[in-house]
Amino acid sequence: MRENISIKLISEELNLQECIDFVQDDACGGIATFIGTVRNHTKGKEVKRLEFSAYTSMAIKELQKIAERALEKFDISKIAIHHAEGLLQIGDIPVIIAVSSAHRGASFKACKFAIDTLKKSVPIWKKEFFKDGEVWVNAHP
């Protein structure tokens, strides 16, 4: 792992301060963060909780690739991408992305790039639990 990239996929609670501390850099003028939170509704239905499962070894490789691409594409210093696995309750945090850069524009762009790409390519799956059943998100036409 490169010293300017922090990747985690863990079943413990994510730690925002840890991500910020990792990307903090005296040469940087700012840190942008994206924090995903578990929403209590989807398409008008009340969501009770979520469960995330992953193809862990491949997911870590894909997260690493996203971080490397962000470092190539944008003028940023460091990037942390941490994702949670397992059962999460409403308001819990499944994902944190933190990016530092000398000037703020690059951090904002890299943060957006990282979360958008993660949602398309990283083999992690979310199951939503409702009062009357459960469904794998995005799985059906």
Binding site: F52, A59, V95, P123, I124, W136, N138
Partner: peptide, 10 residues
């Protein structure tokens, strides 16, 4: 080989 259904992380 791994079968990867539509992903939904984040």
């Amino acid at each position: 080989i791994a079968i990867i259904p539509p992903v939904s992380g984040g």
